[in-house]
Design a protein around this nucleic acid. Structure first.
Length: 215
DNA sequence: TAGGCCATCTGGTCCT
DNA sequence: AGGACCAGATGGCCTA
């Protein structure tokens, strides 16, 4: 399986390089800065004040209008800042949410049977393989249960190994001793589990790869 | 260079 | 109102 691309954007890379900086410092979607806001309002204010101070005769109504406009500009700037902050917070939450999702996917990957040569499963592969794996486990359990029942009914599970050729496995005793198998508490994909249930694992992996479904 | 995968941003919608 | 969730858009990285 080819190694896949996909790495962090320049922005994120810079964020991690300067992790002490607020993420907002890497936000390019708001080129209109607070600084500009204040400057803008300053500029908006300056003509009126210069006019007033220069002694030009502005009637009271006009001044009132200018004050209103200035006030509106200020409140609009404030609303803009509030909106911007809200957006940045939402971006942050969304980022965390996606990180949690990725952590969960990593956890899922870690319990799926892995193949040494394989690179990391993609997200979609992880979900599909997990689906297949669950199906394979279910199938194996179902068949093992059937065998267990058969063995109990005949009260002679002695020939079990001949029925299930699996060198070095304890599948026979496992299948005949209980109607449902006991499972290793270890990680299903771990070497211990493979040792405990070599046959089971081989069977599961076989089914896992011969899944008849759409995937 | 095209295509696949990924991280992130964004606006909309739903829920508490 | 604020947070969670979702889907579309965008741009970067990597491989064939």
């Amino acid at each position: 399986m080819p190694k896949r691309g996909g790495s962090r954007t320049m922005c994120t890379a810079m964020e991690s390089a300067f992790s002490d900086l607020d993420s907002s410092s890497c936000d390019f979607s708001f080129p209109h800065t607070d600084d500009e806001d204040s400057r803008g309002s300053m500029h908006a204010a300056s003509p009126a004040s210069s006019l007033a101070s220069s002694g030009n005769a502005l009637d009271a109504g006009e001044l009132q209008q200018k004050k209103k406009r200035r006030g509106r500009a200020r409140s609009e700037a404030a609303v803009h800042v509030v909106k911007k902050n809200r957006r940045l917070k939402a971006n942050d939450r969304e980022r965390n949410r996606m990180h949690n999702l990725n952590d969960a996917l990593d956890a899922l990957r870690s319990v799926l049977p892995a193949f040494p040569d394989d690179t990391k499963l993609t997200k979609i592969e992880t979900l599909r393989f997990a689906h297949n794996y669950i199906w394979a486990l279910s199938e194996t359990i179902r068949i093992a249960d059937q065998r267990g029942n058969k063995a109990r009914d005949s009260s002679a599970a002695v020939n079990c190994m001949a029925e299930v050729p699996s060198p070095g496995s304890d599948a026979c005793s496992w299948a005949s001793s209980a109607s449902s198998p006991s499972y290793s508490s270890s990680n299903p994909g771990s070497p211990e589990a493979m040792d405990d249930y070599g046959f089971l694992q081989a069977d599961v992996v076989y089914r896992y790869h011969s899944y008849p479904g759409i995937y």
